[in-house]
Simulated assay, not measured.
Amino acid sequence: MTFIKTLKLAVLGAITAAGLTVAATAQTFIIDNERVEKDAAAYKDFNLQTTDLRQNILQLRQYISRGGAAEQQMAELEKQKAIIGNDKYEEEKKKIEQTYVAAQQNLQAYEYLFDQVRQEALVQVERARQPVIRQILKDRKAQLILPKRLVLGSAPGLDVTTEFIELLDAELPSVTLTKLPPKQAPTTTPAPAQQ
């Protein structure tokens, strides 16, 4: 037991040490995805193309939110109830309620559209990312690239974010958003839902 087990343990220890040495010499790099999303041309192009859509979503959220324009209109109407009479009050209340419901429907439609457009852009970015990652792995003779958010710390020189952004910009300078409707002027009141 002693000699054979000792020999097996020694061989196992040597194999483990060799594996650790190989793992320690393996090149691992990191990419800061937050910086990529802020600085890469494709992301900037997406944000530019979806400005109107995001603005419409924001306006509608502000309109229907607690303390928003719809609630303020109802509060103002309540104050005028004694002055304008019951019939006029009910008529105006119904208009505000209809506008509120239309705003909710439009918000849902715009958010759904934004999700579709964002997904369309993400597919294009992901298709462009993969060859860029492979190119960096090949050029740097690396075995692994990790997102920066998963790394607790790293030595200087392991961050390849700038190189990644430059290569991604060359591969995909802009995104094509086929699901995005033509530009419209932003409105202050909710537009009717489009089907």
Rank of each mutant, 00 (worst) to 15 (best):
T2E: 14
T2P: 06
F3G: 07
K5L: 15
K5M: 12
L7E: 07
L9M: 11
V11D: 06
L12A: 15
G13I: 07
G13F: 13
A14C: 12
I15G: 06
I15R: 05
A17Y: 08
A17N: 06
A18W: 09
G19W: 11
G19K: 08
L20W: 11
L20D: 04
T21E: 09
V22L: 15
V22F: 15
T25E: 10
A26L: 15
Q27R: 15
Q27A: 15
Q27F: 08
D32I: 08
E37F: 13
K38P: 02
K38R: 15
A40I: 09
A41Q: 14
A42P: 07
F46Q: 01
N47K: 14
N47A: 13
T50L: 06
T51N: 11
L53A: 05
L58I: 09
L58P: 00
L60D: 11
L60A: 12
Y63T: 05
I64D: 03
I64G: 04
S65N: 12
S65F: 03
R66E: 12
G67I: 04
A70Q: 07
A70Y: 08
Q73R: 12
E76K: 13
E76N: 13
L77F: 09
K81I: 05
A82N: 09
I83P: 02
I84N: 06
I84V: 10
N86C: 00
Y89E: 03
E90A: 11
E90K: 11
E90R: 10
E92L: 11
K93S: 07
K94I: 01
I96N: 02
I96M: 06
Y100K: 04
A103L: 04
Q104F: 02
Q108A: 10
A109Q: 08
E111L: 05
E111K: 01
E111D: 05
Y112V: 01
Y112I: 00
Y112E: 07
L113Y: 01
L113T: 02
L113R: 04
D115N: 11
Q116E: 04
V117L: 00
A121E: 00
L122H: 00
Q124P: 01
R127E: 13
Q130R: 12
V132S: 05
R134K: 14
I136T: 02
I136A: 05
L137I: 05
K138V: 02
R140E: 12
R140V: 03
K141P: 01
Q143P: 00
Q143T: 10
L146S: 09
V151L: 07
A155F: 12
A155H: 09
G157H: 03
G157D: 06
G157T: 04
V160T: 01
V160W: 04
V160F: 02
V160G: 01
T162V: 09
E163I: 06
F164Q: 03
F164Y: 15
I165P: 01
E166K: 14
E166Q: 13
E166F: 02
L167Y: 03
L168E: 02
E171G: 01
P173M: 07
S174K: 14
V175T: 03
T178I: 06
K179Y: 03
K179F: 03
L180N: 03
P181L: 09
P181N: 08
K183D: 11
A185L: 14
P186S: 10
T189H: 08
T189V: 12
T189Y: 12
A191Y: 05
A191P: 08
P192L: 12
Q194H: 08
Q195R: 11
